[in-house]
Design a binder for these strands. Structure first.
Lengths: 233, 233
DNA sequence: ACATTAATTTAACACTAATTTAATATTGAA
DNA sequence: TTCAATATTAAATTAGTGTTAAATTAATGT
């Protein structure tokens, strides 16, 4: 996995912590930007569109919870993940953090290794979507070691081109658009086949089978009784 | 915790009691609305969507039990808590109250302090339900140290993922949606299995067993003769 | 339009995890 | 204490997918 594709915005009012976090995440390859309060965080996020905002809860100017709410209100940042950092014992609750639209809640102190793995786990739930600057259509989707090139209608796995027929390509594109999310069979039918096209029950399975055979078995996981999800390792 | 975020609807036909209750809860910061019978309670609840309805059982027009049933029938008020007030010795049973969908059952006379702490406890332990802003479906439920991630179809316990088969997942989701509320077996059958699916009596027990084994024994408590409830330690 | 080829769907059966049942033990409220 | 309700375990069943190959349909070139 190439972590350098991911932009992370780190927000904390204490310079030491900011540097400590930045250092540890830079070492892993992430592209780091920093801000030192909630107000700054909101504007910087709007400007650079990070994939993840890692933010202290307690900050001057605008606290993390409020900043998160503002970030959530920005349509452009719909898919931006927000993780909160908080010292154990601070009276902000996990509840408030999630209610504000947070995706994870990390308590300090935390070892760099644990922090990094938590963040990697979070980012695995987010694919990198590259849009056409002109018309806003999706050009590429990257997640794990797969790259979906919608323009060339190709899947690239570790530099190797894999060409897929239409339905398989669209099915994979759908699943990979939100890694880890379980897409129900119904959802898949609606979005790949269309609302009022009726096909037999085994059709999806056969497509999944073919996809697995072509891209590898490990990427698509079955959630019995519900549907399928795309996972990275 | 800022109690002024909470709206409480108080319902009693005796004016003195209504004023006594209102006063004591207003002092604590709650936003209070009142109604003087069940009929009024139902319409007022629909209008203001309170977090909690505190209601006498014995009332003219429409008694508390019936009013509660009507409130429960309103989808918008699914997560509204209902607490009954009843004079000791009145012949309404707790069972009837729970069956009507009540969340707590408080017997009069009660000291203001006790009442207030009971109400605070009730509001505190409600789980946090995070809905998708787009389609209104439930995305996450958080209560105690468990997080139900419906999108990923996973239970997260202290950062650890636990995956559950469908019925177990749905059963846990149901119980956790209202911590401390006792769900009767009938209710569980209706909401997890569906109204007209008939399965043997031990089926629920077996699912509870498996859940307890996977998430830990302490979370689900048996209420003999009635059903099960989810508790946070 | 027709033939050709690839893509998609169906059908039949296999396989496995999930669910249910059944049998027996244990529990807790009256 | 008593006994109905629940717990527990293992076995039986079923629902849901996997898999393969064959049939159908759609796309392409001539």
């Amino acid at each position: 996995m190439n972590w350098s594709d991911y932009k992370v915005l780190i927000v904390d009012d204490e310079k030491d912590i900011l540097e400590f976090l930045s250092y540890n995440l830079r070492v892993e390859g992430f592209k780091i930007t920093t801000a030192s309060n909630g107000r700054e965080a909101v504007s910087t996020a709007a400007a650079i569109k990070p994939h993840l905002v890692l933010m202290d809860v307690m900050m001057p100017e605008l606290d993390g919870i409020a900043a998160c709410e503002e970030i959530r209100a920005n349509k452009d940042l719909e898919h931006t993940l927000v993780a909160f950092l908080t010292a154990r014992g601070e009276d902000y609750s996990q509840i408030a953090a999630f209610e504000a639209g947070g995706d994870d809640y990390i308590t300090k102190p935390i070892k760099p290794k644990v922090l990094v793995s938590r963040i990697k786990a979070l980012l695995k739930r987010r694919s990198i979507i590259i849009e056409d600057s002109a018309n806003g259509s999706v050009k590429k989707i990257i997640s794990g070691d797969l790259l979906i090139d919608k323009e060339r209608y190709l899947v690239i796995k570790k530099g190797k081109d894999i060409s897929l027929p239409r339905k398989e390509f669209e099915l994979l594109s759908l699943l990979i658009s939100k890694p880890e999310k379980v897409f129900t069979r119904e959802e898949i039918f609606d979005r790949v086949w269309g609302e009022n096209i009726i096909v037999g029950d085994r059709t999806i399975d056969v497509h999944i089978r073919k996809l697995r055979k072509k891209i590898g078995e490990k990427y698509i996981r079955t959630v019995k009784g519900i549907g399928y999800k795309y996972v990275t390792v």
